[in-house]
Simulated scan of single mutants.
Amino acid sequence: MSKSEIRLRCWITLEQQKFFGPGRVELLNWVEKEGSVSKAAKKMGMSYKKAWDMIHDLNTRGQQPFVTLRKGGRKGGGAEITTSGKQFLNKYAQLLQKLQTVIEEESEILRLL
């Protein structure tokens, strides 16, 4: 007997283009943990350029920047999630939890399979 489940991936779009979703959540979480875009990219197995492009997109298309970047120097560069970026991550997590609750409440449909 196979196991059935309802799965959902939630994306937020701006001007009919993907803006925020699971990949960017993961990237921002790694940036927060590592303090670096390059280290976050490495943890995710993606190129630095792709990670930087994602951060640049968040920072330029969002109402406020998600990440602040510090250029390298004697102490090296770094990255930090902004307060508004953290707030957005929290709101997105709340949205996902609400959606998961709906999925759990409606999971009786699986019995009809």
Rank of each mutant, 00 (worst) to 15 (best):
R9H: 06
S38F: 08
A93W: 03
G76E: 11
R61D: 06
T13M: 05
V37K: 02
E105T: 14
S107M: 11
I81T: 03
I109R: 09
M46G: 07
R74P: 12
S47P: 07
K71W: 12
T60K: 02
A51C: 07
E108N: 08
G77N: 08
I81K: 03
G62C: 06
A40K: 03
A40S: 12
S84V: 08
F19L: 07
E26N: 05
G62V: 00
T83D: 14
F88P: 04
F66R: 02
S36F: 03
T68C: 08
F19A: 00
K50R: 13
R7V: 15
L27G: 08
Q64G: 01
Q16K: 00
F20R: 02
K98V: 11
L28V: 12
A79G: 09
Q94I: 12
E15T: 02
T83V: 12
E80G: 05
Q100H: 10
Y92R: 02
G72L: 14
G45Y: 04
I103P: 00
K91P: 00
K91L: 10
G62L: 03
N90Q: 14
E34F: 07
M46P: 00
L27A: 11
G23R: 08
L27N: 04
R7I: 15
M1W: 04
Q17D: 07
E26I: 03
V31C: 04
L58T: 01
Q100D: 15
I6D: 09
V37I: 07
R111L: 15
I55L: 05
G73V: 10
G21E: 09
E32Y: 00
T101I: 10
S84W: 13
P65I: 08
F20I: 05
G72W: 10
A41E: 05
Q64L: 13
I12N: 02
K43R: 11
S38M: 09
L14C: 01
S107F: 06
E106P: 00
A79W: 03
E108D: 14
